[in-house]
Amino acid sequence: MIPVNYYLTLSVVLFSMGALGVLIRRNSLVVFMSIELMLNAGNLAFVTFAKMHAANLAAVHNGQIFVFFVMTVAAAEVAVGLALIVLIFRKKQSIDLDQLTHLKG
């Protein structure tokens, strides 16, 4: 059996990758994927903790339900996000975030 800490470590690593990915990538799709990665790292942490608190049934449910909610919400975000990215692409023929610097100062 793999110890719980490994999952948690993985989750933290994933989260950090996501958080850093947002910082270093320019492609808006990839940035968006990094954010999804962060959300999913959260999910992983949730199920891990649910497993950790296995003695407490309510906690198990709680954690797992949360994951479902997050996934649903992420899906909604994808819908909105992709729509926006597509719009941008149509207008600029590019989804490079660094070209979106009209607003500044």
Binding site: I35, E77, V80, L100
Partner: peptide, 24 residues
């Protein structure tokens, strides 16, 4: 829109992870 969306989601990521830690 895209800036608000990306950064908003980014923040959401932190909230989710934070909630997970609290839950943990």
């Amino acid at each position: 829109g895209i800036k608000y969306f990306l950064l908003g989601s980014y923040a959401t990521g932190f909230i989710v992870f934070g909630i997970a830690l609290i839950f943990g």
